[in-house]
């Protein structure tokens, strides 16, 4: 799973998709996940990093990661060849 290359992520949590012209805002945990996805980080690595940095158990991560990426797909922010 990979974020579209041309999606612009800014430090303020502002996301801009230049292909569609849509923009979004994300919260800090979302921002961290997006940045990791943008770098092409595999899911297991994202999981260990989030669980290292935040008070978060594995099942919570799994649930929320699934939902978050569902929304990314919904907003057409993921590479099509997924």
């Amino acid at each position: 799973m990979k974020l579209r290359k041309n999606v612009a992520i800014s430090d303020s949590g502002f996301i801009f998709n230049p292909s569609t012209g849509d923009s979004y805002s994300v919260n800090p945990v979302g921002m961290e996940m997006l940045t990791l996805l943008h770098e092409g980080t595999p899911k297991e690595k994202i999981k260990s990093q989030i669980m290292r940095d935040y008070v978060c158990d594995e099942s919570t991560f799994e649930k929320d990661y699934y939902d978050f990426t569902l929304m990314l797909r919904n907003y057409k922010l993921l590479e099509e060849d997924e």
Binding site: Y24, S25, I50
Partner: peptide, 19 residues
Amino acid sequence: KKLYERPIIRPLNTGLMNK
């Protein structure tokens, strides 16, 4: 460890509700 909050993303240019 930092306080965890479920990751959320919401569209911005739909107007209406602001921050």
